[in-house]
């Protein structure tokens, strides 16, 4: 457990010192959300209707940006060799990386989402629902992304392949994330529960997929 915390602590500290990965994701998110209204014209009703979908899509695209560095840096500088010899099984190494990704990328993105929503004229009563859906769903997003990053480890141009690989896997998160905003009775509760279920499944299953890929990536 201490080794697990030490690894997460190191990754958070590195992300904090580096700043570029988080900054790129945040910047991409805000820029994407800011230019979409320019393309759609000044129809405020239209914007507030499609705001949740745009926010979710921009969120997922931004979250993918920082994923490829998740294992690649550790592999390139030899840290990954040393990590897998340590007391943690590869599954927990992968899980700690996904947790670090969620804390350093998804949480900052969620924090700026109210501001991004403002640019899209999102309804005030829709915002809490959106934030709840993001909190429930993005944990799973980070774990799916972690497995994808492990799978493309060691491939040349893996960073280009990665979005192709994992964006389709985000479809269920997107469907239920936007579904949570529907106005019909019970839609929010059902969607949130399904998002939780997706996240729990990802947390439970994805580290095993990632560990398998990591072992292959070390060859």
């Amino acid at each position: 457990m201490n080794a697990f915390l030490a690894l997460i602590g190191r990754d958070l500290r590195l992300a904090l010192r580096q700043g570029s990965a988080v900054g790129t994701a945040l910047g991409f998110y805000l820029v994407a959300v800011a230019i979409i209204p320019l393309g759609l014209g000044p129809d405020l009703n239209l914007l507030s209707r499609i705001a949740p979908g745009i926010l979710w899509i921009s969120f997922l695209l931004s979250a993918v940006l920082s994923v490829d560095a998740l294992f690649q840096e550790d592999r390139d500088d030899g840290s990954l060799d040393a990590l897998v010899l340590g007391p943690l099984p590869a599954e927990l190494i992968a899980a700690s990386k996904s947790i670090a990704h969620w804390v350093t990328t998804c949480v900052p993105l969620i924090v700026v989402t109210p501001l991004a929503g403002l640019l899209l004229n999102i309804q005030a009563e829709a915002l809490p629902k959106l934030l709840a859906a993001l909190l429930a769903g993005t944990v799973g997003v980070s774990f799916v992304a972690g497995a994808g990053a492990a799978l493309t480890l060691g491939l040349r141009k893996g960073a280009l392949l990665l979005p192709l690989l994992i964006l389709p896997l985000f479809t269920p998160f997107l469907i239920f994330g936007v579904g949570a905003m529907a106005t019909s009775a019970g839609a929010f509760e059902q969607s949130i529960l399904l998002l939780f279920a997706l996240s729990l499944f990802s947390v439970a299953a994805m580290p095993f997929a990632a560990a398998l890929a990591l072992r292959l990536g070390l060859e």
């Binding site: 030490a6 690894l7 500088d77 030899g78 990590l83």
Partner: peptide, 20 residues
């Protein structure tokens, strides 16, 4: 490869591996 992080200080690098 040495398995060290250029963003961390020398003591932080070795302390991480020690604790890990």
């Amino acid at each position: 490869a040495n398995g060290i992080k250029p963003r961390l200080s020398v003591i932080e690098n070795v302390s991480f591996w020690q604790g890990f």
